[in-house]
């Protein structure tokens, strides 16, 4: 399958050293690896990733330490940070994107920073050549092309209503949204939220340019902790190769 694959794990869950190990495992199968910079109140996340955020913070994971980790990993996959606007704002927009640049970060996803509020952030993302990833939702409706037009890096198409987490049903009309996007941009469209099986990966990859899998990996880490690497490898193979 020559479709793109993005994997997600939370930095510092169960420890930053283990995150490094998991990144190395995922890299062989992932075009992009999203690293969650933990936040105390992640409102777009379901229970699985919420709990990972809590574990990571309890372990003393900080923004500075996550940048240190990212600076020191060397994999072929592109690295993307997923976090919430407050940790970025408090760190300082300029400093955050400068550090992204210096750590080789390809893009940043901020679920609670909608298009209308990007203004104060985008100049720094541009200045330091970091993509501020655009999210499009099943409820975006008339907003789809406005959002897609300015997208760079890739587009994160939210598969369904609600929060992140494994699910069996997705919103109807995703293919229409992808068609609308394709009219205005060539930026790859990646579908995320709730994808956890090879079958779903294949199905979503038919609609879009690829998929994002997060909660399913985080669930493995919640279960196996320090010993997750083997299970992650087995699962990512299953997902991508079948």
């Amino acid at each position: 399958m020559n479709k793109r694959f993005i994997s997600f794990i939370t930095a510092g869950d169960p420890s930053l050293e283990k995150t490094r190990e998991f990144i190395n495992v995922l890299a062989s199968f992932s075009d992009v690896i999203e690293i969650g910079l933990p936040f105390s109140d992640p409102i777009a996340e379901g229970e699985v990733i919420q709990a990972a955020n809590m574990r990571a913070l309890k372990n003393g994971t900080t923004t500075v330490k996550v940048f240190e980790l990212l600076r020191s990993v060397s994999v072929c996959s592109k690295m993307v940070i997923l976090t919430y606007i407050n940790p970025v704002f408090v760190y300082g927009y300029e400093k955050f994107f400068k550090d992204c640049n210096e750590s080789g970060v390809y893009g940043v996803i901020i679920p609670d920073l909608p298009f209308e509020e990007r203004g104060e952030v985008i100049e720094f993302a541009k200045k330091y050549n970091v993509h501020l990833i655009t999210m499009i939702a099943p409820t975006s409706a008339k907003r789809v092309q406005m959002l897609a037009k300015d997208a760079t890096g890739f587009i994160y198409l939210v598969s369904s209503m609600g929060t992140t987490g494994v699910r069996s049903e997705f919103a109807v009309g995703l293919d229409d949204i992808v068609k609308q996007i394709k009219i205005v941009t060539d930026v790859p469209v990646m579908v995320g939220f709730g994808i956890s099986t090879h079958e779903q990966v294949v199905k979503m990859s038919e609609i879009a340019d690829g998929v994002i899998v997060g909660s399913a990996f985080v669930k493995i880490i919640a279960e196996h902790g320090d010993n997750s690497a083997l299970y992650i490898e087995k699962f990512v193979k299953e997902l991508t190769i079948g």
Binding site: D112, P114, E117, A137
Partner: peptide, 9 residues
């Protein structure tokens, strides 16, 4: 208005 895109509309 710092909310996820899902809520913007």
């Amino acid at each position: 208005q710092y909310v996820p895109e899902t809520l913007m509309n």
